[in-house]
Nucleic acid binder design. Structure first.
Lengths: 350, 350
DNA sequence: TTGTAAGCGTTATCAC
DNA sequence: GTGATAACGCTTACAA
């Protein structure tokens, strides 16, 4: 029985050890082996030990595809997010992965720029048990998404709300507002927003994002003028070019005395641009970043930030998803965590 | 025929659309549908179009598990590497993912700290088509690994050599040597190495890594004393604590006039420690990082680095792996890329 | 406690 | 050009 069946099988990759092989050697049925491996059902200690020994000897490992086909479960979670060269997403993935490792899940990393069709395909029930989505703002509004199975086992982790699905939201509004009011208290007059846009002219109507929106509202309330600095007028600019773009703004319009930056990374770029332009932080210009990217505190002066409670959010997201996987008819799970302003040297006028 | 068969099927997750469903509606066999979907075999234009239309209508997507079981191919590549909160790995994964996206592969992200058994299991033929490993120095020496199928479709991307497998190696030696000689040329006397260790006392014998090894050799040749600063005496220290640990060294032993750091991140920590201690960069101390982490150039002064040719290495790695997947009997593919010193302000004595 | 049979959704082979 | 059939390796349900 241990001879390889003819034909078909040999065309495949090198023969792998199957349940049947173990069963043959151990002198039992493949079913018995299956039970032993999964630790289910009643098996006598004698056969159990024998089977385990043989499995060990033959170096048996389960075929995930076959198991998936039979059970509909994979033990794999898809994560759809932005580029990992952004520290924000990299840290998020890192935190999520740590959680999943503990729960015995693995991670399939998908790119949010992929075709929606490909995403749906990749995350079909048969391929992953659940999905975590971050930074794909518009996904939850698409009917193809809402009608798909994907949405059944999906948790959003975002700064947006997603009314019809589970989500963990990070609310930046208070943190950003506090940062700007802090600048105003210190007497700053020209507080500009440093963001990203591919439009040539700034148009407040595309302020779909909390940070920019809150900036505009807060500045308005204080009867000051808003000012938008584009840190990436063209896609695919290098960091050096982006620094130059910001510097060019200073050269043309003079320097604001406060900068609210979309990301921590942009705060770093802006800091460098200020240096090259010849402005001091914080004496001439106060600076704050819209998230707390690692190593902002290593700058001199250390860069302030609106710190996202990323760890808390990731833990919660994973809890939500596990609950959803175990019971897909659970009521909507939605929670908001608040980001907090971290005042470092870049916000301290001496 | 479109009614759902009794029993078994209903216990599973919500019924998915299968080849058979499409076939029933289109009035053909599932085999024909399969051929149309895969674009293989000779199918009349009439049936092809009809099948495609029905598939579209029914929103059919292939079941990956079933396809894998039948073909032995998954279209998924496992990547095993260190923590993504290190910018080095995050960028690597980001670059690799971009490559894979173009070739129609997806990525399964595994953690190098997982049990070897789990890794082997996860990367069995049935689960992924190939594996990329980075930073798992010792893996290629383990017999369990070498005897496994994993090693058949595996490329290492590392600063080490892995004699028995495909690899792309990043060679740091010349870059590090150049950095140190540059410091010596500028008259620096106390050039210290800032690294990571969990031993209390420094022991040159654990210099398995190119950077430290090259540092020791170069310092020796110049008849200077080596000096080791531990930037992480305990695992799980926060960045603040690590900064303090470095600062503590300065307080106890005075400040070196040159620092060679294992990573870019450590250079950032060391920079901050120097600031807090009251030393100026580069006037008092020259600083260089062992890899070129993004945003080092945003510091004031900008931090120098031994820049890894990461993009080149990732492209090469992916080429190697694809070649290996297509032909597993290919001779060993091994290539070395050299890292180059990037001199920024932190290495320029004025 | 163990075994039998059927089924998961796809593809390879070969006959029509 | 199209279809029938077996096979991929595992698990569920039920019989022995």
């Amino acid at each position: 029985m241990s001879q390889i069946p003819s034909g078909f099988r040999e065309k495949r990759r090198s023969r792998t050890v199957t349940l049947q092989d173990v069963a043959n050697v151990a002198g039992v049925t493949s079913m018995t082996v299956s039970k032993v491996i999964k630790g289910k059902g009643n098996i006598s200690t004698a056969t159990r030990e024998k089977v385990l020994r043989v499995a060990e000897e033959l170096n048996y490992t389960a075929n995930l595809a076959a198991r998936t086909l039979a059970t509909g479960r994979t033990g794999i979670i898809a994560v759809i997010c932005g580029e990992l060269d952004q520290a924000y997403y990299a840290n998020m993935v890192s935190l999520l992965q740590a959680q999943m490792l503990c729960s015995g899940y693995e991670m399939r990393l998908l790119h949010k720029e992929s075709e929606l069709k490909d995403l749906l395909n990749a995350t079909k029930t048969s391929a992953v048990d659940g999905v975590i989505v971050s930074g794909a703002h518009d996904l939850s509004e698409k009917p193809e998404f809402l009608n798909s199975e994907l949405s059944q086992h999906c948790v959003f982790l975002d700064t947006f709300e997603h009314p019809n699905t589970d989500y963990v939201r990070i609310d930046l509004r208070e943190g950003v507002q506090e940062a700007i009011e802090h600048m105003i208290t210190l007497g700053r007059q020209r507080i500009a927003y440093v963001g990203v846009s591919n439009a040539t002219e700034f148009d407040p109507s595309w302020a779909v994002e909390d940070r920019l929106r809150t900036y505009l509202a807060t500045i308005n309330k204080a009867n000051k003028n808003h000012e938008f600095i584009n840190s990436r007028p063209r896609i695919d600019m290098t960091r050096e070019e982006r620094i130059d773009a910001i510097k060019l703004y200073f050269e043309r319009h003079g320097c604001p005395d406060g900068l609210v930056c979309l990301h921590g990374e942009i705060a770093m770029l802006a800091f460098r641009a200020l240096r090259e332009y010849g402005c001091r932080v914080p004496e001439d210009v106060l600076v704050v970043g819209g998230d707390d990217v690692p190593f902002m505190e290593c700058f001199a002066p250390s860069l302030s930030a609106v710190a996202h409670p990323l760890e808390e959010a990731c833990v919660l997201t994973w809890q939500f998803l596990q609950a959803r996987i175990n019971n897909s008819s659970l009521p909507l799970q939605q929670k908001t965590c608040k980001a907090k302003l971290v005042v470092r040297e870049s916000l301290q006028s001496r």
